[in-house]
Amino acid sequence: MYIDGQIISGEFDQETQIFSLKKVKNFYTETSLKENQIGNLYNYLKMHADDTDGQIVTLYDQMLVKLSSQEVKVLIGELENIQNMY
Rank of each mutant, 00 (worst) to 15 (best):
1 M>H: 03
1 M>C: 04
2 Y>K: 11
5 G>S: 14
5 G>Q: 15
5 G>I: 14
6 Q>L: 15
6 Q>E: 14
10 G>S: 08
11 E>D: 05
11 E>W: 00
14 Q>T: 03
14 Q>G: 04
15 E>S: 04
15 E>C: 00
16 T>E: 09
17 Q>P: 00
19 F>N: 01
20 S>N: 10
21 L>N: 00
22 K>E: 10
22 K>G: 03
22 K>Q: 10
22 K>R: 15
23 K>S: 02
23 K>D: 00
24 V>I: 11
25 K>R: 07
27 F>L: 09
28 Y>V: 09
28 Y>W: 10
28 Y>D: 12
28 Y>E: 09
28 Y>H: 10
29 T>G: 01
33 L>N: 11
33 L>M: 14
33 L>C: 03
33 L>I: 06
35 E>F: 14
39 G>A: 13
39 G>Q: 13
40 N>F: 13
41 L>R: 08
42 Y>M: 06
43 N>Y: 05
44 Y>T: 10
45 L>H: 06
46 K>W: 13
46 K>P: 05
47 M>Q: 12
47 M>G: 02
48 H>L: 02
50 D>G: 01
50 D>Q: 11
50 D>I: 09
52 T>D: 05
53 D>W: 14
54 G>W: 04
55 Q>K: 12
56 I>C: 06
57 V>N: 09
58 T>M: 14
58 T>S: 11
59 L>W: 08
60 Y>N: 15
63 M>T: 13
64 L>C: 00
66 K>P: 00
67 L>F: 08
68 S>M: 03
70 Q>M: 00
70 Q>C: 00
70 Q>R: 03
73 K>G: 08
74 V>I: 15
74 V>C: 02
75 L>V: 06
76 I>F: 07
77 G>A: 12
77 G>V: 08
79 L>T: 07
83 Q>V: 06
